[in-house]
Amino acid sequence: MKADAAGGRVAEELAANAPELLAYFERRVQPADAADLLAEVMLAAWRRASELPADPERARMWLYVTARNVLANAQRGERRRWRLANRLRLLVQPVAAPDAGEGAEVREAIARLDPELAELIRLVHWDGLTLAEAAEVQGIPASTARGRYQRAKSELREALAPV
C-alpha cells in the first residue's frame, strides 16, 4: 500500500470510528482524559498506517485493539505514578505548620512587599534556598537578587520597627 493511500485509509477509518473509540475511553476513564487517549490511538494509527487492515471491519477491530493497548499503557503509567507518590510520601517528613497567630506580623509585612521581593524572602527564609539558588528560581542574576534582598530586608525592618 502506498504512503498516500495508507494515509487516506487511516483518515477514513479514524473518521468512521473516532466517536465509538471516544465513547470506549469515556466509559473507562475520566472524560478529560478520554480525548487524550483517543489522540494517542490516532497517532499510533498514523505511525502504523501500513499495518491497518483493508477490510473496514478488521480495521475497526485493529483500532479497538490499539485503543485497548493505549488504555493499558495509561493505566500502567498511572499505577507507577501512584507508587512513586506513595514512596515519596514515606520519605518526606511533614513540615509542622506554625500556629495561626505565630509570626502573623512578619507574614503580613512580607505580604505587603513588592511580589518579587516577597518571593525572594520566602525562598531564602522559608524554603531554605541560598540567595544564588533563589535567584536561579526567579530567573534573575545573583547580583540582582542580592540588591533586591537588601531592599527587602530594609523594607521589612521599617515595617516591623517598634513605633
Rank of each mutant, 00 (worst) to 15 (best):
A34N: 04
S50P: 15
R81H: 09
V65R: 12
D114H: 11
R148K: 05
A161G: 13
P98G: 10
L38A: 08
V92T: 15
E20V: 05
K153L: 06
K2S: 13
A45Q: 14
R76Y: 07
R79F: 04
L43E: 13
V29C: 04
V41L: 11
G103M: 04
D114R: 02
A67D: 10
L63M: 03
G101M: 12
V70F: 09
K2T: 14
Q138R: 00
R107G: 12
D55M: 08
P98R: 06
A16E: 11
N73C: 11
A34I: 02
E116V: 15
A111L: 04
A159M: 11
F25L: 08
V65L: 12
R81T: 10
L160H: 05
E119H: 02
E13G: 09
E20N: 07
V10S: 08
W46K: 12
G103K: 04
L131D: 04
A44V: 09
L131Q: 03
Y24M: 08
A44H: 12
G147Q: 02
A134M: 00
N69G: 12
N69D: 10
D127V: 09
G103I: 01
L37V: 01
A39V: 10
A142E: 13
A11W: 02
K153P: 09
P94K: 02
L129E: 15
D4E: 11
G147L: 05
T66S: 06
A97L: 07
M61F: 15
R27K: 11
R146A: 03
W62V: 01
L22A: 14
S154V: 13
A59Y: 06
L37K: 04
P115V: 02
R122H: 02
A11E: 09
L131H: 04
I121P: 03
P19Y: 10
Q30V: 05
R157P: 07
D33L: 09
E105C: 07
A134S: 04
T130I: 06
R80E: 06
R60F: 04
A6G: 13
L113G: 07
Y64T: 08
S154L: 12
V10I: 03
R9S: 03
L123P: 01
Q30D: 12
A96E: 11
L131P: 14
A152M: 01
H125I: 04
A32H: 08
D33K: 05
A6F: 14
A85K: 06
W62E: 11
A67W: 09
V41Y: 09
G8D: 15
L88I: 12
E116K: 02
